[in-house]
Every structure is written in structure tokens, then in C-alpha cells.
Nucleic acid binder design. Structure first.
Lengths: 286, 286
DNA sequence: GGGTTGGCTTCCACTGAGCGGAAACTAGTT
DNA sequence: AACTAGTTTCCGCTCAGTGGAAGCCAACCC
């Protein structure tokens, strides 16, 4: 029996009505930490293009309006959210500034070479790694010429529909590949390869030939080619090019450049331990 | 006088001992919100290069160790922090992914042209805006050739020591410029212009000629040139080039390209309302 | 005008999430 | 085996956080 001395009387008084009060109090969701609420608010912006109203945020993050209001205000003061004149909210630059420190090792080391890849080919070039069951685009260099773009820096796409994804999957450890093929493979266009058997064969061939291609598998009008970038013997990343479909036939002429650049990135990143290149575990919780 | 009914007695009882209890409780810092603690933890990573140990984080964010431990754990689960095999922490990719949505309007709109600027000149090109009393680097395109680099994407530098900063300051509204000149101007190298009078004259000349230059004012070995990018009649951003010092004399040959690219960026961003380009208020709380 | 609607802001009594000192644990180091 | 430095777990106390409700403000429409 260790009732706090000073609390005793008031508690005893209250206890009679506790139940009805809790019932009336209703939708309190106990066990939810403040931290989780704050992060949920930030993540609410991921699912939507433009700016969000307070009500939108509350809805997307599953929080009561007044709670959202308080937290959003504090985030705004810290610059993690910013408020437009029309009253809607956006992720703030503070967040962006901070995040530039993330994964810099790989991005900074590889950037000049991805740039060279673009300069030498004139085509949209990108660098991607695996994040769970998806490819995560780390960097991207492109000119003013328009290409139908599906990927964006910081964005994710399924591995089986992209050249970078396929090449990573092909050189990944067996269990990763097996696990991937056992899932439902999402179809993006009529040309997406979704048959596990055929895909397995395709991956074997990719491993053989050392590069992967796609033809209108994510988006009509574009095709792509990619080669692996190794790190300490394992597959670490992939670099690739996206081109308009009409160049599909001659895509392989870029292979020598791709392989040369891949080798340079491998050299530049060799001395950096793999874990520090990105956060150690790029988990796949999307 | 509105004492809460049920609290009255217990409060009265407690008040006697309040002081000693607080003393005993020691370093509790009341009034500090959980949110502020979480954000302080994230910001702890800004001030330091590599990964941080738990103790480092606790120290930098001014939180007790066990509190830090709990919050850091939760942030890790959410992917906002990641843990290396050696036990140290890093900002997680989740944070980076989210942040890619920030300020995309401007960056995405301008990127191809900054890329062109690099392609046409072969020199490190960048795009910057004003953030309080500093220039914030929004984008940066460079090749494999080495230049002594001071700026980085997401990084800030003082306005009076950089070409982009000076050109923004020169075309900024009077009160902004006046406020800036009334502050202590930090000296980076022996060549940094820190005399308010002379700087004011230099800014007037920049406004006259339509471009700004620096010569080893942030870092020895490099010089730079920049032109303004306007938006709805006001200064919005600046684009610039950084070159090795030995090219200082011929730097102005890049002016036509710089001006052409600036015009294109102005055209590309004209239809986007200024507020949505970045977070509306890029406040200067660093 | 004045009623209605939709979203934002403020208020405040209640309470469990957060707190953090302390103790236990783990891994190097001497 | 004793020491040191960093990390993890524990647990009773308490105040920060909570969220329903009421107030507020503009816009829109009879």
C-alpha cells in the first residue's frame, strides 16, 4: 500500500466517477508517444504534393485537431514546418538543411562522377541504392531537355520495373532476391515484367551480362540501362541512364561509359566503410 | 480567484514542501516540451561532422542521458536516426527522403538551368537564396575537377563574403541592407571586406553593374562571380560560379552566360508564387 | 442583415506519458 | 581482477500533454 500521501483524499473522491469520466473522455489514445505524433505530422507531408491545411494534417496523421494545432505551432517556431500566407503548411527549410548531412558520404563521393556520366552521354543519369524492397534514388543529374521522368531524388520505385533496381536485385544475395520474387509484383505499365519465373531468368541473364535494361516498364516513352556499383565485394548501388524510347535499340552504346564511371565510383568509395555511406540499415518501411 | 475544486486541498498541502521537492528533484527542467527535445536531438547533428554517440547527443542537446536514450531509440525505430554497427548514431535516410519535398519548386524548376550553366562554363555553379543574414545554398552543380569548396548544398555562408550573397544584398530592400551593415561583419580571410562604409559603396556599384565578384574572401585559392535572379520584381535568388583564383582576371567573360541562365530561371519560376518556392519565411535563426 | 458553414484558435481540468536518478550491465584497458 | 567509460534498464513521481468544447473569424449565400 503506497498511496502518495497528499493524493489520497482527492483520489478517493474521484475514484467513484472514474469510469464514466473515462468513457466520456472517449477517444484518448493512450500509449501513443508525443514523439510519434510529431513524426506522424512530418510524415503527413510525404503523401501529398502541395501544402496542407491544419485539418489536412490532423486527418493524415490521425490526431485530434487541437493536439495537431499545438504540435504544428511548435514545429513552425523551430522552422521544421513553415506557414504560407494562405495559412497552409509546408515542410520547412530547416528540415531540408539538416537532412543534407544525411548520406552525404556516398552522394558527395559519387556526385562528380554521376555528373561526368551525364556530360559524356547527355542523358539523364542517376544513382540509386536498395531500400528494403525498393530502389531509393540518391542522386540525379539531367539537363534542360525533357524526358518523361518517373524517379526523383529521394523517391522510391519498385525494383523489378527499373534498370537500377533489376541490376541491384540481380547481384544481391540470394535470400534477398528470393524474398523479393515471392512477393506480389506490382504492374506499372503493360510492359512491366511481373512473372516471377521469367523475372528470375532475366535476373540470371543480367548477372551474366553485367547490365540491366528496361523498356517502358515504369512509364511509357522511356527506357533505361544500368550497371552495378560494388563495394567491398558486395553490390552497393547502381548507376543508370534514362532515355526516350526511340533510342532503346542503341542504348548499349553507353555501356563502356557506364562501366568506366561505375569503376571510378567504386574507387572513390572504397575507403569509406559501407555503413557510413548511408545510414547503416536502409530499412524498407515505407 | 478560480482554484480548481478538486485540486484545492491537495495543492494547499503540497505547497508547503514544493520548494524542497524541486530542489531534491534537482535538474528537472520544467517547461521544456517533448517536441523541443526531439528537435534538439536532431539539431545536435548539425554542429558535427560524423556520427555521434549517445553521450555526445545528450551533451549537445542538453538533455539527461536516459531521456536522450529513450527519444533516440524512438527516432531510430522511425528511421529518423540510424545506428551504425559501432553503436554511434547518424541522421537517418527517412529524414532525407522527407526533406526532398522541401523547396522542390525552386530547386526542380531551376536545376536544369544550373546544370546548363555548368555545362556551358565547366565551372562549379550554384544557386542560393537569402536566409536571414546568410546565404543558403539551394543547389550546386560541379564536375570531378577539384575546386577549393566552401559552400555546400544546404549550407550557409555570410552574405558579405560571397558573390551570391553580395548580389542578393545589393538588390535587397534598403532596410535589409541597412540592418545587415549595422552588424559586426565576420572576417574569413585577409581579403574579406568588413568595413561597412566600403561595403556599402561596393554594393552600390554591384547594383549599378548588375553583378558581384569576390576574390579569396571566404577561402584562399578561389574567386567567384554572381548575378541576381528576380522574381515578381524583387530579388529572389542568385546564381554564381566559383573558379580557381588564377582565373579571376577573366571571370567576367562568363557574364553573358550567367545573365542568360538567370533570365531563363526567372521565366521558369515566374508563374510559381514566391511563397511556395521555398517555405514562405526563410527565417534566419541559425 | 443575419444565418450558415468551415476552418482555426483558445481554454482548462484531468491524467498517464515522460521523466531522470540510480543501479545494472557491457566492453575495453591496465 | 579491478577499473573506466559508455549504454541500457528500472520505477515511482509529477507536470507536460491532452483533447472536448466553446469561441472566433471569414467567406459565402439566402
Amino acid at each position: 500500500m503506497k498511496w502518495a500521501t497528499s493524493k489520497l483524499n482527492s483520489d478517493a473522491l474521484r475514484s467513484a466517477t472514474t469510469e464514466e469520466v473515462t468513457m466520456a473522455g472517449g477517444s484518448r489514445e493512450p500509449g501513443r508517444t508525443v514523439t510519434s505524433k510529431v513524426l506522424a505530422i512530418l510524415e503527413a507531408f510525404e503523401k501529398s504534393r502541395g501544402a496542407l491545411s491544419l485539418t489536412d494534417i490532423a486527418e493524415k496523421s490521425g490526431l485530434p485537431l487541437s493536439t495537431t494545432h499545438r504540435l504544428v505551432n511548435e514545429l513552425t517556431v523551430w522552422g521544421f514546418l513553415s506557414r504560407e500566407p494562405n495559412g497552409r503548411y509546408q515542410l520547412g527549410i530547416r528540415l531540408w538543411e539538416l537532412a543534407q548531412n544525411t548520406g552525404r558520404q556516398l552522394r558527395d563521393a559519387a556526385r562528380p562522377y554521376v555528373q561526368d556520366l551525364f556530360s559524356l552521354t547527355g542523358e539523364t543519369a542517376h544513382l540509386a541504392v536498395r531500400a528494403g524492397h525498393e530502389v531509393l534514388y540518391i542522386d540525379r543529374v539531367y539537363g534542360s531537355k525533357r524526358v518523361p521522368r518517373a524517379s526523383r531524388v529521394g523517391g522510391r520505385l519498385p525494383m523489378h520495373a527499373t534498370a537500377v533496381g533489376k541490376v541491384i536485385l540481380a547481384f544481391e544475395e540470394d535470400w534477398v532476391r528470393d524474398a523479393y520474387l515471392n512477393r506480389q509484383l506490382e504492374r506499372h505499365t503493360a510492359h512491366t515484367h511481373v512473372d516471377p519465373q521469367k523475372l528470375a531468368a532475366e535476373l540470371a541473364q543480367i548477372r551474366e551480362q553485367g547490365y540491366a535494361t528496361t523498356l517502358e516498364e515504369v512509364r511509357l516513352g522511356s527506357c533505361s540501362i544500368a550497371v552495378p556499383v560494388f563495394h567491398t565485394g558486395r553490390i552497393g548501388a547502381a548507376i543508370g541512364l534514362v532515355l526516350p524510347t526511340n533510342q532503346a535499340a542503341t542504348m548499349t552504346r553507353h555501356l563502356p561509359v557506364l562501366r568506366g564511371i561505375a569503376a571510378q565510383i567504386e574507387r572513390a568509395t572504397a575507403r569509406i566503410p559501407l555503413e557510413t555511406l548511408l545510414g547503416s540499415h536502409v530499412t524498407g518501411t515505407h
